[in-house]
Amino acid sequence: MRNSFLIILIAAFAWFMYDIFSEYQTQEQLNKTAAYYNSNEPSEAGAANVVTAIVVTYRGLDTLGEVTVLFLATLIIGFILKNKAEKIIDSKYKTSEILETGAKVLVPGSLILGVYIFINGHLTPGGGFQGGAVIGSAIVLLLLADPNKIVSHKLMNFIESTSGFFYVVIGILGLIIAGGFLDNRIFPLGKLGSLISAGAIPLIYSFIGLKVGAEISGIVNNINETELTDKL
């Protein structure tokens, strides 16, 4: 009974999607919004990557909201997993030699790769969120190799709150100096395609990268500590 209902539901959904799929035609020309962004972005925002300019400048307020959602998720996770202050060191969580050595080699490299990705967010496919995720994965590897390792909550919270604060400060500076909230023209736009260009976009994306990296590390750290205290 339950299974046949499920199959009917899936079939109905598949039929609905098939209708969309068979009718869909790939467009030949850009629509008006995309044409505006593609043709005006290089002179208005000055970033080589159009997607970055849309995310950070044209839809900057949207991105601020997005960062806030991620912050709220971290906050709620920290609230649900209220940890005891001290961390219990237990030698039975010994991991393999290969993982430990591999982590020693790979963690610094991953951190630098993450920083590279978010600094070059306005030139290459990448940016603050992607770089932050790479930094978070470096912390995951660190904690997988040695679950007893202490990653400071205070440091993570400090990085997260200061970068969030400066993100909003840059936005308000745009309101005072340039044309509006989060306008990137508070600095000169510079030469298209060079590292220091596109006004405030690299700076904003670096703050977003640090913030996202700290948030992901904080979530992983919280879960890891709960696991350790729970099992004992």
Binding site: Q27, L30, N31, T33, A34, Y37, N38, V50, V51, I54, V55, R59, D62, T63, E66, V69, L70, L72, A73, I76, I77, G127, F129, A133, V212, I216, I219
Partner: peptide, 21 residues
């Protein structure tokens, strides 16, 4: 068209937050 890519970047981050929760 760059707009769907920018929107999906938002969607991925929100999806990450929801999955973590």
């Amino acid at each position: 068209d760059p707009v769907p890519q920018a929107l999906v970047l938002t969607a991925i981050v929100i999806g990450f937050g929801v999955t973590a929760l």
